[in-house]
Design a binder for these strands. Structure first.
Lengths: 138, 138
DNA sequence: TATAGTGCTATCCTTTTGGTTACTGGTAAC
DNA sequence: GTTACCAGTAACCAAAAGGATAGCACTATA
């Protein structure tokens, strides 16, 4: 149903606005807590890369594994289970010959796009900053 | 200082656009790598909460410690060093009586605001989803 | 003198994460 | 028959993260 919710009815504040709202800098828990909730779901180095890989059409276990550098079967297996438990991905088994397994993103995983985009943008410019910092003088 | 850079000169693509750009779903490394670069800097449960606390005006070690639930001195100490090494915070020692230490954010840390905002927004709605999922039916 | 606060560090321990190698049972290719 | 692919799991181990408790040198307060 409501796939096109617009944040009009209920003003969603940015982290900064939320803090400003409290008047001074006493209560930062109102910001820290939701951020930690998010961090608890996408914790570790692997979850977002896995989501990215699946979103690019890599649905099969080995396919995902091959497309994420240095991940191992064991880790991938565990992280996929975590993601499934958080309802971000769906595991489907097909009764073909041989049996094949496909992982797909749930619509809920799509709500993480702004997070991924922010991280992608920051990571991109951070990499530039790092590689640029040797020739620029500190 | 260039605080108001507009992404006009160089089109910064979203993660999704970057992928679409490659034509099909073969190369997701171009997205995964920057995201991992970002993740490597803000890894663990503590870095962003610490940045948030400092941005709210909690500059002193104990002050930060008191405002982040369940963090310990040891962990805070280590994370502060990491953040300093990544040039996200600055440690200043004042020769007062007694000596006082202050942690402040660098301008570079402010570039993480979109990340924090995205995480805050997602974490907020995720919390609602979790608490709402018991009464709403699947 | 005792207590509390400051900015940490040290020690010890547990949990989590990650890595390696090996293995399963079925199918298909050589 | 041998090899390889598939989707994992098991066993073992190392490293990193995190938690608990204690302590230090110093200062301020009572």
């Amino acid at each position: 149903m409501g796939a096109d919710i617009i944040a009009e009815q209920e003003p969603v504040l940015t982290a900064k606005e939320k803090c400003m709202e409290t008047g001074d800098h006493k209560d930062c828990l109102g910001v820290i807590m939701p951020v930690r909730d998010a961090l608890d779901v996408i914790n570790g180095k692997w979850k977002l890369p896995i989501i990215i890989a699946i979103s690019r059409g890599h649905k099969r276990f080995r396919d995902i594994e091959r497309n994420i550098p240095r991940i191992t079967s064991k880790v991938l297996s565990k992280e996929l289970k975590d993601l499934e438990a958080h309802k971000l991905i769906k595991r489907s088994v097909f009764d073909s010959q041989p049996v094949s397994v496909e992982y797909t993103l749930t619509p809920y995983a799509a709500t993480l796009n702004p997070v991924i985009d922010a991280l992608y943008a920051w990571g991109t410019q951070h990499r530039k900053t790092i590689f640029g910092s040797s020739e620029a003088q500190g």
